[in-house]
């Protein structure tokens, strides 16, 4: 064996792994990007052009709206919950049970979550019926649970725990000395939050919100189980494009829509990484 070959041997050990990921991760990803520029087996921009269609744009916008709303609500409530937890004892039962529960609940999504809310607020849901029988109010209304409002509410269920998980370390990084130093320099509680805690936590808060946004934007299963008719958001439009041959006159629209999603997620995640780099420098 020549020297060069021998030096290659260690790298050869990675071949199974790299081969596997090439087939099941890289090829699919690349084929999405390439497929977006193909129509009827020929290079074409017609799918990309179809992204400008009013239906697609409106769906994209609704997706963004849903993701932003659930991210902001989740971020605010999650931050409050995280604050309620860090102000308790650091080794207390409360803190441990809340963080464990959040670790579990942040993973809780999809069909089961959709059904949980159907069992709660669906037409014959437990809370809906209780509202009808006890209070005489119709919580079901005209089926808002199955629209964007309902999705926002249901998404909040996994967004809040996720926020707690990602935001807690930043709150933990706040030192009591900062509060006390500010106080002894004459700062009121409000001034402390305005000049010290606020600016320190803001990048982490915004970063976490972006992460929540990406999380909601990518979510499919929950919405698929909840919304069986129509395609109010982008992932459901992709479902539609995948299951029916031709949508908006295009056979490869699913690829273009998927590319659309990749672009949004990459932009959001890049901003997230930039923001987090900033805080991790402060809150060490």
């Amino acid at each position: 064996m020549s020297r060069g070959v021998r030096r290659l041997v260690p790298v050869l050990g990675l071949v199974p792994f790299l081969g596997y990921l090439t087939i099941f991760l890289l090829i699919p990803t690349v084929s999405v990007v390439v497929g977006a520029f193909v129509e009827k087996d020929r290079a074409s921009l017609s799918n990309i052009r179809a992204l400008g269609d009013e239906v697609v744009l409106r769906t994209l916008w609704r997706s963004i709206e849903l993701s932003a709303e659930s991210a902001i609500i989740g971020a605010v409530l999650g931050a409050l919950l995280a604050y309620a937890v860090v102000t308790g004892r650091p080794d207390g039962t409360l803190r441990r049970s809340v963080t464990s529960a959040c670790g579990v609940l942040a993973q809780f999504g999809g069909v089961t979550l959709a059904f949980a809310f159907i069992a709660t607020l669906g037409f014959s849901g437990v809370v809906t019926e209780a509202g009808r029988d006890v209070l005489g109010v119709d919580l079901f209304g005209s089926g808002w649970l199955f629209g964007l409002k309902g999705l926002t509410l249901v998404y909040t269920y996994f967004q809040i725990p996720l926020m707690v998980i990602v935001f807690l370390p930043s709150l933990d990084g706040m030192r009591s000395q900062w509060r006390e130093a500010a106080e002894s320099l004459g700062a009121s509680t409000w001034q402390f939050w305005r000049y010290v805690a606020g600016p320190l936590l803001l990048p982490a808060f915004l970063g976490s919100t972006l992460l929540l946004f990406a999380n909601a934007f990518a979510a499919y299963a929950t919405a698929a189980a909840l919304v069986s008719q129509g395609s109010p958001i982008l992932p459901l439009l992709i479902r539609n494009a995948l299951t029916s041959e031709i949508v908006l006159g295009q056979s490869h629209l699913a690829f273009a829509l998927a590319l659309d999603m990749i672009v949004v997620v990459v932009v959001v995640m890049t901003m997230y990484a930039l923001l987090l780099r900033r805080t991790s420098r402060w809150l060490r």
């Binding site: 087939i23 099941f24 991760l25 090829i27 699919p28 990803t29 690349v30 084929s31 999405v32 497929g35 934007f217 990518a218 979510a219 499919y220 299963a221 992932p235 992709i238 479902r239 995948l242 699913a254 690829f255 829509l257 998927a258 999603m261 990749i262 997620v265």
Partner: peptide, 13 residues
């Protein structure tokens, strides 16, 4: 990479 995106590319595979 959202699962819904991956699935589009995985169809061919």
């Amino acid at each position: 990479i959202p699962a819904i995106v991956l699935v589009v590319g995985l169809k061919g595979v």
